[in-house]
Amino acid sequence: MTQALAFPVPNALGNIDQYVQAVNRYPLLTDEQEHSLALRLKHDNDLDAARQLVLSHLRLVVSIARNYLGYGLPHADLIQEGNVGLMKAVKRFDPDRGVRLVSFAMHWIKAEIHEYIVRNWRMVKIATTKAQRKLFFNLRSMKGDVASLSPEDVEGIAAKLGVKPEEVVEMETRFAGGEVAIDRSHDDDDDRAAPIDWLADESAEPVEVLEAAETERLHDEGLRGALASLDERSRAIVQRRWLVEDNPATLHELAAEYGVSAERIRQIEVKAMQKMKLALSA
């Protein structure tokens, strides 16, 4: 049996610096310890195991939240939202997948922080689609040190992120205009531009590299194998209906292309998804 770890419940802390110092003192888990705790949570609903998993990864949330300080939102609030994502990740974590919690939790932590930022910035009112949100969170790092984007830069970024060139220009204008958070009090006379120049290049983060590697592995070994089990037409239908980020094909579009009814396309799709599910669970 894995040796129990000392994870005392933290006392009330006076400020964010004390909190950061406190969470950095929690011990990191070995692979064996993490697996044992996750199994206890999964099979026995052991809340103490869940607590240890969360506490041992609080420093990860602090590290991720620090990368979003450029939005001018309180570090403590970013951490709080990230902790919510961490708890969701712990609840959904499956130790039998062979993935460390640190890479699995990245998505959930960032998703909660992103949602918090979106809710609290007027600047992102145009970011109503997945592609536009990707533009919001990536434009500054893609722009680099360039003072203003050239028409060629705009076209390139728009093509890479799947948005219109006008949206790239509008978002850049909003960044430069310095709009403020919507939760600002009505009597606040501070007209300073909101900072956003310090967005981190997430591609260089070790945890991001781990997450990307795991995603690639799952896609290669799982999804590719499941797709390979389908016939050519079924595979094409699934790919165009579910595996494209923007503008997936409709049943009627595919029906016209294959010369069958939309209902027939739906039947092929359902059968293909069932076959893929069986392949993935094998």
Results as ranks from 00 to 15, higher is better:
90 V>K: 00
115 E>R: 05
168 V>E: 02
47 L>F: 07
57 H>K: 06
18 Q>W: 06
24 N>P: 03
163 V>E: 00
150 S>A: 10
103 S>N: 05
267 Q>L: 13
252 H>F: 10
234 S>N: 10
43 H>E: 14
274 Q>G: 06
199 L>P: 01
13 L>S: 04
135 L>H: 00
90 V>R: 03
122 R>F: 11
254 L>G: 01
80 Q>K: 09
132 Q>S: 13
219 H>N: 12
52 Q>G: 03
241 R>F: 00
102 V>N: 08
132 Q>K: 15
147 A>K: 09
21 Q>Y: 14
270 V>D: 12
35 H>V: 12
170 E>V: 07
97 R>S: 14
21 Q>T: 08
224 R>Q: 15
38 A>M: 08
76 A>V: 14
42 K>S: 07
168 V>H: 02
57 H>L: 03
188 D>Y: 12
81 E>V: 07
131 A>N: 05
181 A>C: 12
64 I>G: 01
133 R>V: 10
42 K>T: 06
234 S>T: 08
256 A>H: 11
149 L>M: 08
263 E>S: 14
159 A>V: 15
19 Y>T: 02
15 N>Q: 08
23 V>G: 02
59 R>Y: 03
98 G>D: 12
159 A>W: 12
140 R>H: 11
268 I>G: 01
259 G>H: 05
81 E>F: 00
229 S>W: 06
167 E>H: 10
137 F>C: 03
14 G>Y: 06
57 H>Q: 13
178 G>L: 01
64 I>T: 01
155 E>S: 13
169 V>W: 02
232 E>N: 08
57 H>F: 03
269 E>A: 09
262 A>P: 06
81 E>N: 11
251 L>K: 12
85 G>P: 04
73 L>I: 08
11 N>V: 10
16 I>H: 07
29 L>Y: 05
16 I>K: 05
223 L>H: 02
1 M>D: 14
19 Y>V: 07
116 Y>L: 06
236 A>N: 12
21 Q>C: 07
29 L>E: 04
82 G>P: 01
271 K>E: 13
275 K>E: 01
10 P>E: 08
61 V>G: 01
119 R>A: 11
152 E>G: 04
125 K>Q: 14
7 F>E: 04
254 L>W: 03
